[in-house]
């Protein structure tokens, strides 16, 4: 078995004083893994992804990422670069006015020079099938295009693993098919949250089920 990239060990989490959303949850993502995560609405899938990249902190349990346990904010800077999170709502993710600026945001933050950032932008937009979209306005894009641009902005960080939160939500069949193609062509390990069984089967090889705050290996 290859060394895990991301691992949740016995993680418990609750918002405020509510009953816990996650209760002793275990998850392991290794290089080359293609996992899907399913579960009822409100079962805590989004919460789990946010815990993995340190946007939320577990009440107990441990998060091990890229070979090291991560606890403090500073520990997670590297995790967020190497594990790209695609948000459930693209309006949260695309915050720059133009597509080029948005996709370049990550690379520029990583200290890449402008010329290099431009090259990465052109390359990743090509990779998601939107070449020439640099000057377009993010909020005038269609839902499907927006999702692909959001994916490009994640890919521009050149992550080792992808965490995708309902990437097909709100997409029509053609856009879903396009996204499926793009995702199948990517080399990264990925964990995809999706309610769409056909999509899961096309992109991933195993489905995990989040239920009662724990993960079981579900039907594939």
């Amino acid at each position: 078995m290859s060394e895990p990239l991301l691992e949740l060990r016995n993680v418990t989490f609750c918002y405020g004083l509510d009953r816990p959303v996650l209760r002793g949850c275990n998850l392991r993502i290794a290089g080359g893994d293609r996992l899907a995560l399913a579960g009822a609405n409100g079962s805590g899938k989004t919460t789990l992804l946010h815990l993995t990249v340190g946007l939320l902190r577990p009440a107990s349990g441990e998060i091990v990422a890229f070979g090291r346990p991560r606890r403090r904010e500073a520990d997670f800077h590297e995790v967020r670069r190497r594990a790209g999170l695609l948000f459930q709502d693209t309006d949260d993710q695309l915050f720059c006015a133009t597509v080029a600026e948005d996709v370049a945001f990550g690379p520029l933050n990583l200290g890449k020079p402008r010329a290099e950032a431009r090259r990465i932008v052109a390359e990743t937009l090509g990779c998601v099938g939107l070449p020439g979209f640099e000057r377009r306005i993010t909020y005038h894009l269609s839902g499907g295009e927006r999702r692909l641009v959001a994916l490009a902005s994640v890919l521009a960080m050149q992550p080792d693993a992808l965490l995708l939160d309902e990437p097909t939500a709100g997409l029509d069949e053609a856009s879903t098919a396009r996204l499926t193609e793009v995702l199948r062509g990517l080399p990264q390990a990925m964990l995809v949250v999706s309610h769409d069984r056909k999509f899961r089967e096309a992109v991933t090889v195993q489905t995990l089920l989040l239920c009662e705050g724990r993960i079981d290996a579900g039907p594939s």
Binding site: L55, D92, F105, L108, N109
Partner: peptide
């Protein structure tokens, strides 16, 4: 949520401009 998304892409308080 936007702040979270920005953190995920390596934002540490300095905004870089692409356009020159």
């Amino acid at each position: 949520r936007i702040a979270a998304a920005m953190k995920c892409r390596g934002f540490r308080g300095r905004y870089y401009l692409l356009d020159h």
